[in-house]
Amino acid sequence: MKDRIEPRHKVLMRGRLHGSGFARDVCVLDASSRGLLLTLAVPPARGEMIDIMVNGHTLFGQVEWSNGRRMGMRFRERIDVLAFIAGETGPLALRRQPAGKASHSPAFAIDWNQFIARKPQFAGALGLMAIAAFFLVDLITGTIGSLDRISDFLSR
């Protein structure tokens, strides 16, 4: 038996496999961060690009091998296999880390996609804080003058 790069996790999960022009029900028998062992009536051909929807996640990869009703799927990117099995929400892709760097807990990782999606709200809040800070400094120091002088200037 061939040595495994990493441990497999025995599971029994239902999913839906999609490939070029087909969709099939599958059963996931084991999972690792690099791929899945699947069973289905008619597996796609070796080398075919596929995606599978399981536990609310869509995973992309390639058929590595098939034999009878079983097949191996290799992911494009490594995943957090324990989060996948637990059905956790959010991205599953593991972030690549330079060699020698300590890994951090996924619980403390920043989901940059969510941060970027909220960028306009963040920019608006930052602008309002800058205006408030400007008026607070003016109120404390009195360097700019009263609102009457500003309105006189603007009405000219």
Rank of each mutant, 00 (worst) to 15 (best):
G90C: 03
F60C: 08
S66K: 11
R78H: 04
M71C: 13
N55I: 03
L59Q: 03
M49P: 08
M13Y: 13
M73L: 10
M53R: 13
H9M: 11
G35K: 01
M71A: 09
A132K: 09
P120I: 08
G72I: 00
T39V: 11
D25Y: 14
A123L: 15
D25Q: 15
A117C: 05
P44T: 01
P98D: 09
V26A: 11
G21P: 05
V81T: 04
D80A: 01
V54T: 07
Q121E: 15
E48W: 03
F122M: 14
V42P: 04
R96Q: 11
C27A: 14
A117P: 02
L38A: 02
V42C: 12
G68Q: 05
D80S: 01
L12W: 14
M49G: 10
G21I: 03
F60K: 02
G35V: 02
H18A: 14
I85G: 00
V63H: 03
D30N: 13
D80Y: 00
H9Y: 15
P44W: 01
E88G: 01
A107S: 12
A23S: 15
H57C: 05
G90K: 07
G127F: 14
F60P: 07
L82N: 05
M73F: 02
R74D: 04
D25S: 14
R74C: 07
R69K: 12
L126D: 08
R74E: 08
F115W: 13
Q121R: 14
A123V: 14
L36S: 01
A125R: 14
Q62S: 13
M53F: 13
V11N: 07
I116Y: 10
A102K: 10
L82P: 02
P98G: 08
E48A: 11
A31N: 05
S105R: 06
H57R: 05
E48D: 12
R14Y: 14
T58M: 06
M53T: 15
I110F: 10
H57Y: 06
I116H: 07
R74K: 07
P120N: 07
R118E: 12
F122N: 12
M73T: 01
P43A: 08
A133M: 11
S32A: 07
Q121D: 13
A125H: 13
G100E: 09
E64I: 01
T39W: 02
L128W: 15
